[in-house]
Each structure stands twice: as structure tokens, then as C-alpha cells.
């Protein structure tokens, strides 16, 4: 399957310094991993905020449409034409 269209990716506030303040950017790829590589080539440094040792960071959530990619193959989750991707840092913490 090819994905020639650009996929819309929503960038959270804390990562917008990498995208020159842009809230929505385009990326190409047929998997989450390829989308992240595409983002990295346009916005160097962004991938490191999403990945750790080649895996999705524990406190970064990525959604394809309404689904958390952790439940659909994580970085290998397939991205189709017309899908929309949202990146959100987890809201988390605690007294430990």
C-alpha cells in the first residue's frame, strides 16, 4: 500500500518549538515509524522527543484517528490515506 498523500499530524504545545509554532503539520508514511522519520527530516530533534531506544516513549501518546497506537501495533501501526494523527504527552505524575 502506498501513501502518497501527506498525513495531518497534530503537534502538542510542548513540541511546537520544533515545528516553528505550527500546531498541525504534514508527514508521509505508511506506518507510525515512517511518519516519525518524515517528521524528523522536516523538524530535526522531534523524533528524540517521541522515541527512546527505538521504542515509543512511555509518556508520549500517539493516536491514529481515535485509537491509541499502543493497541494497534505501536510504531508498526498502519497509517492509511486520510488518517489523522495526534501526538499528546501523557498527563501524569504522582507522589512517589
Amino acid at each position: 500500500m502506498t501513501n502518497l498523500e501527506r498525513t495531518e499530524v497534530r503537534i502538542p504545545t510542548i513540541l511546537r518549538p520544533y515545528t516553528k509554532g505550527e500546531k498541525v503539520v504534514g508527514a508521509s508514511g505508511t506506518t507510525v515509524s515512517e511518519i516519525i522519520s518524515s517528521l524528523e527530516s522536516d523538524f530535526p530533534g522531534l523524533a528524540d522527543r517521541l522515541l527512546e531506544k527505538g521504542e515509543l516513549r512511555r509518556f508520549i501518546n500517539i493516536y491514529i484517528n481515535d485509537e491509541d497506537v499502543r493497541f494497534m501495533g505501536s510504531l508498526e501501526a498502519p497509517v492509511k490515506n486520510g488518517d489523522s494523527i495526534t501526538i499528546l504527552p501523557a498527563v501524569a505524575g504522582g507522589q512517589m
Partner: peptide
């Protein structure tokens, strides 16, 4: 506002709270 409760410790951000805080506004 983003709020949470500490049930054993004081109402001050823990190291965990600080590490994961991602809404500067």
C-alpha cells in the same frame, strides 16, 4: 488547571510531577 492529590505527602510537586509536566501554560 491540572490537579491531582497526594495522599501521603505534602501538596508540592514530586520529582515525578516535575519530570512529566508538559503544559507550560
Amino acid at each position: 488547571v491540572i490537579y491531582h492529590s497526594h495522599t501521603e505527602t505534602s501538596a508540592y510537586p514530586s520529582r515525578t510531577d516535575i519530570a512529566y509536566a508538559s503544559e507550560p501554560g
